[in-house]
Amino acid sequence: MGIVCNLRRAAAATGLIASVVLVSSSAIAAGGAKHAVAQDWHFEGVFGTVDRASAQRGLQVYLEVCSGCHALKQVAYRNLAALGFTETEIKAIAANYEVTDGPNDEGEMFQRPAVVSDSFVSPFPNAEAAKASNNGALPPDLSLQVKAHAGGADYIRGLLTGYEDAPSGTDVPDGLNYNPFFPGSFIAMPAPLAEDGVEYTDGTKASVDQMAWDVVNFMQWAAEPEMEQRKKTGFKVVLFLIILSAVLYAAKRKMWSNLDH
């Protein structure tokens, strides 16, 4: 435990140094938007891991709700094995979608069911088609959204659960919706989650909060699939480097003790 504490302290100290160096990082946060409340996520911290049960439910939310408009093109179906899905389950999920392949021997493009090595099939063939179906707004790809916003997971959870009626006197432009967590408060996406919007296979009650929580856990994994390996490797590397530094320092003292200095 002592090592763990030291590591945490070291991490805190380096963080402190860094925040002094970089006084301005928070300056870039979206101006004027309401700040989302920081949550206690399972993936946070030096030993954070993916909450697989939640991320699995999150996949269900993505597939049944979000994927109507949002692509997830950086993730392949085979990657779902990391969330604990079996090969049979992954094959079944992929088979629900059609991809264009080809050309075949006759030079024709053809449709075939997706296989595990395919990336998640996008809802629209291109950005123009996506805009045409969404009032001119482009639904962003969700693969990296957690990393692409200051506030990360907290911001997205805040956004998904933050829809409310506009305060009196505020005119919401046509085709937009009021959400104080969104920079500028007017967002093209209508409130995507409704109570019991999905029926969870594991029997969890699908409240808006629960679905937002789950889909953010899923999106976090989608954005950083390397996280668990990174932190596990990092623990060993940093521990090794701390010991190495100490040994080298002791050797240096010993060597220099023979000198008049």
């Binding site: 070291a10 991490a11 380096t14 963080g15 860094a18 030096v46 990174r230 990092g234 940093v238 480097l241």
Partner: peptide, 8 residues
């Protein structure tokens, strides 16, 4: 390394 692995 602390940044590379824990706050990249």
């Amino acid at each position: 390394a602390a940044f590379v692995f824990f706050a990249p």
